[in-house]
Amino acid sequence: MAQTRAQIAAVDPVWARIIREAEQAVGNEPLLGGMIHYSVLHHPTIERALGYRISLKLANGEISEQILREICDEAYASDPELALAARADIVAVFERDPACHRFLQPLLFFKGFQAVQAYRIANWLWREGRTDLAYLFQMRCSEVFGVDIHPAARIGRGIMIDHAHSIVIGETAVVGDNVSMLHSVTLGGTGKEEEDRHPKIGDGVLIGAGAKVLGNIKVGNCSRIAAGSVVLEEVPPCKTVAGVPARIVGEAGCPQPAVSMDQILRGGKI
């Protein structure tokens, strides 16, 4: 077993750590042994574990867990980027969320992580032309997690959505790599315009709780949007914006706001 674990760690350190943490969790809390075994230890790869977890969460009387699991397994087999992004998301949550102490937690307990992984499957379906199934995933994700991400939206790696209540991301929205956002964030359109109508969020951006970014506007790399702000105009890179409507109130204050998670405005200057 030690050799097998070493081999797993050599090729997939994230999955190897999840397995180790799962074994420890079963020892610490035997009552969760069944759940942890079926969610983690029963599976040979992180892809299979993700497929099981997503299908278990989204299944209902209209579509079975087995059908959803087959869809997820097909997606992960077809596009390795899906699981690579999931690994980056796990690491992002662990590094940025002070409530996360193990890689195991996002997979088992954090609905923000689970919702993003469900979106990734929906996005794969959308790109494959299977739009009705993609909409079904979106619907179930909204019903189960309170996170409504259009399957056509484009979202990068290393995403952390903390708490994840009432998140809305529109059809033509783009979210870069290593972005962090808190609950009640909206990346929406304005009015009833069609085509490209949603925000383009750069890499390393931090979006505070309750912030609304509306319209086809750019938010520059490594910028910060303060909690409760309504952003209607372009945000330059490495700036902090706040207010309704939002305006520039200072520099971002650090190279990677999404990683530092520093949301404090200090006298209008950072």
Rank of each mutant, 00 (worst) to 15 (best):
T172V: 11
H163A: 09
V185L: 02
D196S: 11
N178Q: 13
V231S: 09
G156D: 09
S229K: 13
I207S: 11
K192Q: 08
I161W: 00
I167R: 01
S180H: 10
G220A: 09
V175Q: 02
G189K: 07
E194C: 11
D162C: 01
G204T: 03
H163C: 13
H165R: 05
D203F: 00
L214V: 07
L214Y: 08
V230R: 12
T186S: 14
G210I: 05
M160P: 05
D162V: 00
P199Q: 13
D162S: 01
I155E: 08
I207A: 05
A153Q: 12
I225L: 04
E171R: 14
I169H: 12
N216P: 03
D203G: 01
N216L: 02
A209V: 08
L206H: 08
G188C: 08
T190E: 11
K192H: 12
L187H: 04
G228I: 12
R197A: 12
G204M: 04
R197S: 15
S166Q: 14
I225Y: 01
C222I: 02
A211G: 13
G170H: 12
I217V: 13
K212D: 02
I161E: 02
S223H: 00
I201V: 05
G202N: 09
S166H: 12
R224I: 04
R197D: 13
T190K: 13
V174K: 06
G188Y: 04
A164H: 01
E194I: 15
M181F: 15
S184M: 10
V230N: 10
G170W: 08
I217K: 05
S180N: 11
S229L: 05
E195T: 14
S180R: 13
S166L: 14
M160S: 15
K218Q: 14
V219F: 06
D196F: 14
I169G: 13
S223T: 00
A153P: 12
G176W: 00
S223A: 04
G204I: 02
E193K: 15
K218R: 15
A153L: 13
E194K: 15
E171L: 08
S223D: 00
G176H: 01
L187C: 06
D162K: 00
D177M: 04
T186C: 15
V219H: 03
R224Y: 04
V174C: 10
A226L: 10
I159C: 07
E193P: 03
G220W: 04
V231Y: 08
N216R: 12
S184W: 03
I159P: 06
G210Q: 06
E171S: 10
A226E: 05
R224E: 01
G220P: 13
G188I: 11
E171P: 04
A209Q: 10
V231C: 11
V175M: 05
G228Q: 08
H163F: 09
V175I: 11
T190A: 13
A227C: 14
A226S: 15
